[in-house]
Simulated assay, not measured.
Amino acid sequence: MTMALRAMAQLASWPDLSETPPSCGTGRALSTVQNEIVHFHTDQFVDLHLTARAIRRFEDHLRGATAVRLVPGSPWVTIRLEVETDMDLLLTLVSLALQAHQAWPVSRDTPSAKCNDQQDMALPRNNSSGS
């Protein structure tokens, strides 16, 4: 069983998440009643709807994590699952995303933000916070 499948199974057991079709049409997704939270696109790449506010708040830490890729202006982060600690990071960030969506709910009138799967601007895995 791949890490992505293990993470999907574990997260699907969380009471606030349920499996839904991803809005991007690729892979599998987990959502709350109000928002898509996680898209499992491949066995290695997962997009997480962390929210723009949470990304700004934790940007330095996210940029320091080699498993995380950011797309400028996107409220989603991409996580590459290669080792156990990447899965641990994903689970922690999903928890953070759930808290962020509860603390700062997105209006139902706001169009849903597209995940990073359809964006070409993802930074390489070995990103650094230097310019």
Rank of each mutant, 00 (worst) to 15 (best):
E36D: 13
R57A: 15
R63A: 09
L62H: 06
A29P: 02
H39M: 10
V38P: 12
A65T: 11
A67H: 00
V38N: 07
V33P: 09
G64R: 01
A52K: 06
E59L: 00
S31F: 03
L70A: 03
L62A: 02
Q34D: 13
H41Y: 10
I37A: 02
V38H: 08
E59G: 01
V68T: 01
T42F: 13
L50N: 01
L50Y: 01
L48G: 04
A67C: 13
A29C: 07
L62Y: 10
F58H: 15
I37D: 01
E59A: 11
L48P: 06
R57I: 10
L62D: 04
V38L: 08
R56Q: 12
R63V: 12
F45Q: 11
H41T: 09
R56M: 03
A29Q: 04
A29I: 05
Q34M: 07
R63E: 11
V38K: 06
A65K: 05
Q34R: 14
I37H: 01
E36Y: 05
Q34T: 13
I37S: 01
A67N: 03
H61R: 15
Q34Y: 07
L30M: 05
T32W: 01
V68D: 03
T51H: 06
I55H: 06
H39A: 09
A52W: 00
I55Q: 02
R63G: 08
R56G: 03
A65G: 03
A67T: 00
R53K: 14
V68N: 01
G64E: 06
T32C: 00
L62G: 03
A29F: 09
Q44R: 15
H39K: 07
T42Y: 12
A67R: 02
R63M: 15
D43M: 08
V68E: 02
A54P: 03
Q44M: 13
F45S: 09
R53E: 15
R69P: 00
T66A: 05
D47A: 06
I37F: 02
R53W: 06
D60Y: 14
V68L: 04
N35V: 11
F58W: 15
S31H: 09
H61M: 15
R69A: 11
H39V: 14
Q44F: 12
G64K: 05
A29H: 09
E59I: 10
L70W: 07
D43V: 11
H61K: 15
V46R: 06
R69W: 00
A65V: 03
L50K: 00
L30D: 02
L62N: 05
H41Q: 10
E36F: 03
Q44I: 12
E36A: 08
H49D: 04
H39I: 10
G64V: 03
R57P: 04
A54V: 01
F45N: 12
R63H: 13
L62Q: 05
D47W: 07
F58D: 15
T42R: 12
H61D: 15
A65Y: 06
R53C: 08
V38W: 03
E36M: 05
D43F: 07
V46T: 09
R56K: 14
Q44T: 14
V46L: 09
H49N: 09
L48V: 07
F58R: 15
R53M: 12
A54S: 10
L70D: 04
L50V: 00
L70F: 03
D43Y: 09
F40W: 10
H41N: 11
R53T: 14
F58T: 15
H39N: 12
F40A: 09
V33T: 14
L50T: 00
